[in-house]
Simulated assay, not measured.
Amino acid sequence: MPHYLIFFNQQWVSDHDEAWYQTRVEPSTAVVRDMREQGVLVFAGGLEEDLAQAASADDTSGTPVVTDGPFTTTEQWLGGMTIIDVPDDETARRWAGRVAEGCGWPQEVRRFKGGSMRAAAMGE
């Protein structure tokens, strides 16, 4: 089956107080629990928001260079992601809708390209 990435950029999350975020814990974890129970969950998690904790690796000069911080300064950055293994786009979109509902902010969903790297990484 194809694998899909459901993700959000941190800037898509509206400003809310801590009490509001607490209201999202149960619905968002319920979606992940449902994914696990239905056997479609590969991975789910949020990323650290502090970009100072990021590092970048670049080999375009022919020598790998690893530096502190994000690769480029940008107005948007990845906030979290879920990887699912489902049969088709329609099913992936339904799960993305459930994740958006559970979290309370928009999500984007995209299919991973097929290929040997993906198959090897997934043990296929």
Score class of each variant (00 low, 15 high):
residue 1 M to V: 12
residue 68 D to P: 00
residue 15 D to S: 12
residue 41 L to K: 08
residue 114 G to M: 08
residue 4 Y to D: 07
residue 16 H to P: 06
residue 38 Q to P: 04
residue 79 G to H: 04
residue 63 T to C: 04
residue 64 P to M: 11
residue 76 Q to Y: 00
residue 16 H to C: 07
residue 88 D to I: 13
residue 83 I to E: 01
residue 8 F to S: 07
residue 18 E to A: 12
residue 116 S to I: 02
residue 61 S to N: 10
residue 90 E to K: 12
residue 107 Q to M: 15
residue 7 F to D: 05
residue 92 A to C: 08
residue 105 W to T: 06
residue 70 P to F: 02
residue 32 V to Q: 10
residue 10 Q to C: 06
residue 42 V to M: 04
residue 20 W to P: 02
residue 119 A to P: 02
residue 5 L to N: 01
residue 55 A to K: 09
residue 77 W to M: 07
residue 33 R to E: 15
residue 66 V to F: 01
residue 37 E to N: 15
residue 78 L to S: 02
residue 116 S to N: 03
residue 2 P to D: 05
residue 23 T to F: 06
residue 105 W to I: 10
residue 117 M to F: 05
residue 4 Y to L: 06
residue 55 A to H: 04
residue 94 R to F: 09
residue 91 T to D: 14
residue 75 E to Y: 06
residue 7 F to P: 02
residue 16 H to L: 05
residue 67 T to R: 05
residue 21 Y to A: 12
residue 43 F to A: 11
residue 48 E to S: 10
residue 122 M to W: 02
residue 17 D to A: 08
residue 64 P to T: 15
residue 14 S to H: 03
residue 59 D to A: 13
residue 72 T to D: 04
residue 40 V to S: 03
residue 22 Q to W: 11
residue 85 D to V: 08
residue 36 R to S: 15
residue 77 W to R: 14
residue 8 F to Y: 15
residue 84 I to A: 00
residue 43 F to D: 06
residue 2 P to G: 03
residue 48 E to G: 14
residue 65 V to C: 03
residue 95 W to T: 07
residue 28 S to K: 10
residue 44 A to Y: 04
residue 18 E to S: 10
residue 29 T to V: 15
residue 107 Q to S: 03
residue 60 T to F: 00
residue 20 W to M: 07
residue 88 D to F: 10
residue 1 M to R: 04
residue 5 L to Y: 03
residue 121 A to H: 03
residue 27 P to E: 08
residue 32 V to D: 14
residue 115 G to M: 04
residue 66 V to L: 08
residue 109 V to H: 01
residue 40 V to L: 02
residue 57 A to W: 01
residue 69 G to K: 01
residue 101 E to F: 13
residue 119 A to I: 08
residue 7 F to A: 09
residue 46 G to Y: 01
residue 44 A to H: 11
residue 6 I to P: 00
residue 119 A to K: 13
residue 31 V to G: 11
residue 110 R to N: 06
residue 45 G to N: 11
residue 10 Q to K: 10
residue 56 S to H: 01
residue 120 A to R: 12
residue 59 D to E: 07
residue 19 A to G: 04
residue 89 D to N: 11
residue 88 D to E: 11
residue 25 V to D: 03
residue 39 G to K: 06
residue 58 D to W: 00
residue 73 T to W: 00
residue 47 L to K: 05
residue 113 K to G: 10
residue 11 Q to M: 05
residue 24 R to V: 06
residue 120 A to N: 09
residue 81 M to I: 15
residue 93 R to N: 09
residue 119 A to Q: 12
residue 114 G to R: 15
residue 39 G to A: 07
residue 31 V to F: 09
residue 11 Q to N: 11
residue 45 G to D: 11
residue 66 V to M: 05
residue 74 T to P: 02
residue 122 M to Q: 06
residue 79 G to L: 08
residue 7 F to W: 11
residue 16 H to I: 04
residue 62 G to T: 03
residue 111 R to A: 12
residue 37 E to G: 11
residue 120 A to I: 00
residue 26 E to K: 12
residue 119 A to H: 05
residue 32 V to S: 09
residue 22 Q to G: 09
residue 59 D to S: 11
residue 93 R to M: 14
residue 102 G to P: 14
residue 105 W to H: 11
residue 82 T to C: 05
residue 118 R to A: 02
residue 124 E to K: 14
residue 87 P to A: 13
residue 45 G to C: 09
residue 85 D to I: 06
residue 43 F to R: 09
residue 10 Q to D: 13
residue 19 A to W: 04
residue 99 V to M: 10
residue 59 D to N: 14
residue 121 A to K: 04
residue 73 T to N: 08
residue 38 Q to R: 15
